[in-house]
């Protein structure tokens, strides 16, 4: 019995020591990197209305709410260009806990929403399984603005988000709420719609893909 105990203790120690050395690495998750690459591709398949393309010198802005991991994931394309425009990543620290006060004319909230509206893409990053408390309220506030909202939680499309990531057999898939896209005056090209796992075309009606 003594032998088993020694053996168990040594095994546990080895596993945890080994785990410790790779901790830093695990935070920079592969999943986020793959999703960032998806996002990069999405930008090519989405047309923003003219009002958002005034100045081609302006970068395409990708805003991130929630987990910071996406910032690191985007690092490799800092100097790349899409549609001849550079990409700028904005991290909205603390927005995941943003609350709207009961005051209908909540000045601070409105101001923050105006800032978010300047983004082309807004990612609600819940990689670390953290919740973004008021994501549906934020989405609601942005629904008429040409912002491509991207999430990774079940029910994201139903709450008005445009694209949602999901996992299937350890692979990344996505679904699209084209009705929400249209309302945001975004044109999603048919190729992207075709690759989506599920497309919501009209409010309420859900189209399933084979």
């Amino acid at each position: 019995m003594a032998r088993i105990k020694v053996y168990l203790i040594i095994s546990a120690l080895v596993l945890f020591l080994a785990a410790d050395t790779v901790k830093a690495d695990s935070e920079n998750s592969r999943e986020c990197q793959v999703k960032a690459a998806f996002l990069y591709n999405f930008i090519n398949f989405v047309d923003w209305p003219k009002e958002k393309q005034v100045d081609s010198n302006e970068p395409i802005t990708v805003g991130i709410i929630g987990y910071e991991d996406f910032i690191k994931a985007f690092e490799p394309i800092k100097n790349k260009k899409i549609k001849n425009r550079s990409i700028s990543i904005k991290y909205f620290a603390g927005y995941e806990k943003l609350k709207r006060s009961k005051d209908a004319d909540d000045h601070q909230w409105n101001q923050k929403m105006e800032v978010l509206k300047t983004c082309h893409v807004l990612v609600f990053c819940t990689c670390n399984s953290e919740r973004i408390e008021n994501s549906s309220q934020i989405i609601k506030a942005l629904k008429d603005s040409p912002v491509l909202t991207v999430g990774e939680t079940k029910g994201f499309l139903e709450s008005g988000g445009v694209i949602n990531f999901l996992m299937e057999d350890e692979k990344v898939r996505f679904e699209i709420n084209n009705a929400a896209a249209k309302q945001a005056k975004l044109n999603i090209r048919s190729k992207l719609l075709r690759l989506a796992k599920r497309v919501i075309e009209e409010d309420g009606a859900k189209g399933a893909k084979d």
């Binding site: 960032a36 591709n41 398949f45 790349k80």
Partner: peptide, 30 residues
């Protein structure tokens, strides 16, 4: 060294959506 180059994130940006859909990522939620 491994903490810096455990993955090669740059590579993913070279991939098309179809290729990305074949990349396996393992998650706790799996």
């Amino acid at each position: 060294a491994q903490q810096q180059d455990a993955n090669e994130p740059g590579d993913f940006f070279e991939m098309s959506i179809e290729e990305l859909m074949e990349v396996e990522v393992q998650t706790a939620t799996k």
